[in-house]
């Protein structure tokens, strides 16, 4: 649905996005991850037709974002980062105006406005002036606007920034539901959000794609660092641990008489019973044994930390 190839954007001399290539298939919900200043918003602005790339190309639903910009804009719902709105208008007035410029009229317009007001929990405040709304409500107006024309593709730049915890939760649920009807590209810094709402992720760092794939693929990539964490009371013999079959590295630290070891291994599942047997044979007092599951966060830190160092 979204096809980006070798996209590069320079602001003056500064390369904000370099050689970015990715694909978003129809019906996918893709999280666009990256630290501050990674180039997420820049990429999304290019896709939405607000900026033009320095080089490279992007197509949405088969239409080029530069040469066929109008067709692209008809097919996307875009929610910019800080959600700029006309503060002096009322919500319904604003949505009426937006529906008008998006080509919705008459009964269809009223029906869509009612639908998005309900979908984004705005019915109670529909007559309120936008300038008097709180940040979270403005965010919802932005989302409502993106949904207005029922576009096949949604591009949402940090849709949950500035929301309270319950709102974040319901917005995530909404995004998951919307994911059944729309193709969604959403950017965020919150990793757990991607794990909850998306099935694919693209990690971008300093303007380049650092990793992309389904969530489980990405976790597998992170699992280079997978292993077991075990804690024991009293002293243990770490050479015995290191010689255990399948262990590639051992890290040991002791705090207050408790020894904590981190065992790296490619096959964590079969390591656990072997470790238990060893502990029983040596008479070590086991406090805990747990697998260390790689999270997206580990991968994220690996990627962003590595290049910062």
């Amino acid at each position: 649905m979204i096809h980006v190839s070798r996209l590069t954007k320079f602001y003056g001399d500064y390369p904000a996005v370099q050689d970015v290539t990715f694909d978003v298939g129809a019906g996918q919900v893709v999280g666009f991850l990256g630290p501050n200043g990674a180039g997420k918003s820049t990429t999304m602005r290019i896709l939405a037709g607000y900026l033009t790339a320095t080089s490279g190309s992007a197509t949405i639903a088969g239409h080029d974002v530069v040469w066929d910009s109008l067709e692209v804009r008809r097919r996307i719902g875009y929610m910019p980062e800080s959600c700029p709105l006309y503060h002096e208008m009322r919500i319904t007035e604003y949505l009426h105006f937006r529906a008008g410029i998006k080509g919705l009229y008459g009964a269809k317009r009223r029906q869509r406005i009612d639908y998005v007001l309900k979908r984004c929990w705005l019915e109670d405040v529909r007559r309120q002036i936008i300038g008097t709304l709180s940040k979270g409500y403005r965010q919802r107006v932005g989302l409502a606007d993106a949904l207005l024309a029922a576009p096949p593709v949604l591009i949402l730049d940090e849709p949950t920034a500035g929301l309270d915890p319950t709102q974040i939760r319901s917005t995530r649920e909404l995004i998951r539901e919307l994911g059944r009807e729309h193709t969604i590209l959403l950017s965020t810094h919150i990793l757990s959000e991607v794990e909850m709402t998306c099935d694919h992720a693209i990690i971008i760092h300093r303007g380049r794609v650092a990793a992309q794939g389904t969530l489980s693929e990405l976790k597998d990539r992170a699992s280079a660092g997978a292993g077991l964490v075990a804690a024991f009371d009293g002293q243990i013999d770490d050479t015995a641990l290191a010689s255990l079959e399948g262990v590639t590295a051992v890290q040991k630290e002791s705090v207050d008489g408790i020894v904590r070891v981190r065992l790296k291994s490619d096959d964590v599942a079969s390591l656990t019973p072997r470790l238990c047997n060893l502990a029983a044979a040596k008479g070590w007092k086991v406090r805990e044994i747990r697998p260390e599951r790689p999270t997206l966060e580990d991968l994220f830190v690996q990627i962003t930390g590595r290049e910062n160092a």
């Binding site: 602005r45 939405a48 607000y50 804009r73 910019p80 410029i101």
Partner: peptide, 14 residues
């Protein structure tokens, strides 16, 4: 200055 131009120019208008 308020950023609403981004909303306006990403709407399907020439």
């Amino acid at each position: 200055s308020t950023g609403t131009l981004e909303m306006l120019l990403t709407a399907p208008l020439r």
